[in-house]
Amino acid sequence: MDRSFWLGPLLLLLFALSAQASEVILISGGPAVRSFEKFKSNSHDKYWGNFIDSALQRVKDLQKEGKNKDKVVWLVFRPSYLSRGREDGQDYLKILEERGALVGAQPIYFDNKNQLLLLLRRDGSIEKPKISRLEYFGHSNKKCWMFDYSNRIDGGALEPLVLHVDDLSQISSSSFTPDAECISYGCHSGEEFSQRWRMIVGRPMIGAVGKTDYSDGGMPKITEGKGGTWVY
């Protein structure tokens, strides 16, 4: 049989595989509990779903833009929603799953840093496609993503539930496509985390200098009047 007979479909299959071989990762950190925060002058997370609504708004925006056909994978830090739900007498996991279903996003839960690092470990295979875009919605300072801020510990986060700049060496640049875009919508990420990410992970990351504000719903903005900006 003629070899060219097989070559066509094989090339088509390879093209299809390469076209599907990357994913968009959206990460939602968890809210604080009100019992720790409600008496503070600078109180966080009056609304439990800041990092859920913003991530789902981003899913909608990506669908509208239509540029990126990659599958959207939505990673959600579960323990904080369970504890905030216990405090408020609500099943927030059920609510966020329902909200995700409205835009076609199903949450994949992680419970600690190690699970997240495992989910970000990619080799480009069909099971573990490379990451073409990564965006983070949650609490952070200039050195750390805190999935668990003021939830189990008042005003802080437990060590296994944060991603510190010292942990970035555990994320491989080979998990990302060469043109991957990364954005952190947490506070102060642009002051150091972004630069360390670029140096260690090898991809530029857009981050905020100053605080970000989720209080208007939807996508976060730089807090007004404090000279903040987005940098990479």
């Binding site: 300072n141 050195k143 750390c144 805190m146 801020y149 510990i153 005003g155 802080g156 986060a157 437990l158 060590e159 296994p160 944060v162 510190h164």
Partner: peptide, 10 residues
């Protein structure tokens, strides 16, 4: 066996 992260003082 684990520690807590203090964000203001890193």
């Amino acid at each position: 066996p684990y520690r807590a992260y203090e964000p203001q003082a890193d």
